[in-house]
């Protein structure tokens, strides 16, 4: 028996719609739960005051600072390194065994669990290089962790730039570097920014790799050598050790809000960039 193609089409449309609604619905549900459970415990005081009694009372100001610093600093290191590698792989080399090895390495790095990065960071940065549990150790570890994401997304974005744009640039007397900086990168910018956004999200919400390398001090980090406790780590400790579930949900809400704000800002910048170059 053969089903009526129109019925199949209807069925598929409904099934796909259902799947899309389900996927977004789960996300909305998570945010709603965090909002409902967290909102009663969030106030200006919670955001701007220091924790007391291991976080049982008071606010999470040092954790917010630690989180933002860790996120921004790892990007400051990872973006030039990652985008540079992507430019090298796409514009300055031909496909060869060498590039295939690099690419394979990058892909393998992307699949390593974050706690392994944490362990490496602990052994190498914290112990071997004597950086201790510090913002710097944490930053460098997170940098290595998010590099594969930035490299892969930047590479795809650069590859997607039509080759005839490069030819036009060369035909107008541009050097390779001028072509890369003035034509290729601007055109690839939306894709590159997507990778950077994903990386911020990972850096800000990471726990395992951060506990091992940045520690969990509740003090406000004021230098690269200071330890600190990011919001994700704070949440983990509050919940895991049963210190205060209320404060944990409050922290989770601020963390989610932070990530949303970063994404909105990035989208805003991206749209401005796209408007300028199209």
């Amino acid at each position: 028996m053969r089903l009526n193609p129109r019925w199949i089409n209807k069925l598929v449309t409904w099934a796909l719609t259902f799947q899309a609604v389900l996927a977004v619905g789960i996300l909305v549900a998570i945010i709603l739960v965090i909002f409902i459970k967290g909102a009663p415990h969030v106030s200006l005081g919670f955001i701007f005051s220091y924790p007391e009694d291991m976080g049982r009372h008071g606010g999470i100001f040092p954790s917010i600072v630690a989180t933002v610093l860790l996120g921004l600093l790892s990007l400051v290191f990872a973006t030039p390194l990652g985008v540079g590698t992507a430019i090298f792989l796409t514009e300055y080399t031909k496909e060869s065994t060498f590039t295939r090895i690099i690419r394979f390495g990058v892909e393998s790095l992307a699949g390593i669990p974050s706690i392994i990065y944490g362990l490496f960071g602990f052994i190498f940065f914290v112990i071997k290089l004597g950086m201790g549990w510090s913002l710097l150790s944490g930053t460098l570890t997170i940098t290595i962790m998010v590099l594969p994401t930035i490299i892969r997304t930047s590479e795809e974005a650069i590859k997607a730039v039509p080759n005839n744009l490069r030819m036009v640039s060369f035909s107008l007397g541009a050097t390779k570097w001028e072509t890369v900086t003035r034509v290729v990168i601007p055109s690839a910018m939306p894709g590159i920014l997507t990778g950077i956004m994903l990386s911020i999200g990972r850096a800000v919400s990471e726990t395992a790799a951060v506990i091992f390398t940045m520690g969990s001090s509740l003090r406000l980090p004021t230098s690269l050598a200071d330890s600190g406790r990011t919001m994700a780590v704070h949440f983990y400790i509050l919940a895991r050790e049963g210190i205060s579930l209320e404060k944990a949900y409050g922290t989770a809400l601020i963390l989610v809000m932070t990530i949303l704000i970063i994404n909105f800002v990035a989208y805003y910048l991206m749209n401005r960039m796209v408007a300028k170059y199209s």
Partner: peptide, 29 residues
């Protein structure tokens, strides 16, 4: 090659504007 291409201009078969404004396209060179 760069010096050569400043002497020799090229127009391709299909129009290929750079993704930017009219002004910036011409100011590129």
């Amino acid at each position: 090659d760069v010096a050569l291409r400043k002497k020799v201009g090229t127009l391709f078969a299909t129009p290929i504007p750079l993704p930017r404004s009219i002004f910036e396209n011409i100011a590129f060179g």
